[in-house]
Amino acid sequence: MSLTLLLVQGLNGLQLGILLFLIAAGLTLVFGVMDFINLAHGVQYMVGAYLAAFLAAQTGSFWAALALALPAALVVGLVLEFLVFRHLYDRDHMAQVLATFGVILILNDGIKALFGSAPLQVPMPEALTGGFPIMDGLLYPHYRLAIIAGGLATAALLWWLVERTKAGMLIRAGATNAPMVAALGIDIRRLFMVVFGFGAMLAGFAGVMAAPILSVEPGMGDNLLILAFVVIVIGGIGSVRGAFIAALLVGTVETLGRSMMPDLMRLFLDPSAARQVGAALASMLIYIAMAAILAFRPAGLFPVRAA
């Protein structure tokens, strides 16, 4: 494998990591601050993608779709909070898992009833359709650079929000000890609602950004949800900084593993076995990495809650 290819794969890993971060950031806030397991977070990513598809078809512009999809995703999040999640904060994790799983089923089928089950496409914004030659015969789409830029900007914004504002201070305090925050006279329910809506909007944003390069279809968020959970567990539940580092780590390990494992296995095995074993190992790699990290740091890389 040449150095150029390695760099290209590094960039691909970075981009996957950024996408994961956008999903995991909201998840880690909701899980960390509210101690609430929201399996429906991946569905909110799907809702974002469908909103983008619908609004782009209506307005004819990706940018207009993006601008409208974000508040719409926020509203969807708040409505879900009001209808379902609010009633589950005091229940145990099992009840939350069951109820949010139900939300997955309902939203997946609701989306299917509205839009049909066929995959949809979202056209790329005109200004970002091209790509620049990153290696011989391969273009790196401008749009993917825009995803990276958008993700980094979101990370910076989140850092500022969480570390430098009063709301952020409350969020951090809530993640460390929620009952104490409530005892100090803060309306913790309101804080939860804001955090939840914001998390839903971040997931929706990820969905909008991913829509032009991936296929928009029911259930598209379900697989990413698992990766997002891996990210927040590695990063330390409730830590946005941890989620950022872990997302980049998972994205890079996943991409490099996929591209190098078969070649690596070829050193030990015959080519056809190497391909099969390599592909299988590559898909296990991030879970192995997670196990290894948790073995040394059981609370993740950046633990929030005092043990």
Binding site: M1, S2, T4, L5, V8, Q9, N12, G13, Q15, L16, M135, D136, G137, L138, R144, I213, L214, S215, M220, N223, T255, R258, S259, P262, S272, R275, Q276, A279, S283
Partner: peptide
């Protein structure tokens, strides 16, 4: 080369880079 990807994988940028190479 033969490349096998997980059934759930939707982003093929790593495989496309290998094809270009």
């Amino acid at each position: 080369d033969e490349m096998f990807t997980p059934l759930t994988q939707m982003d093929f940028s790593a495989e496309l880079a290998r094809i270009a190479a």
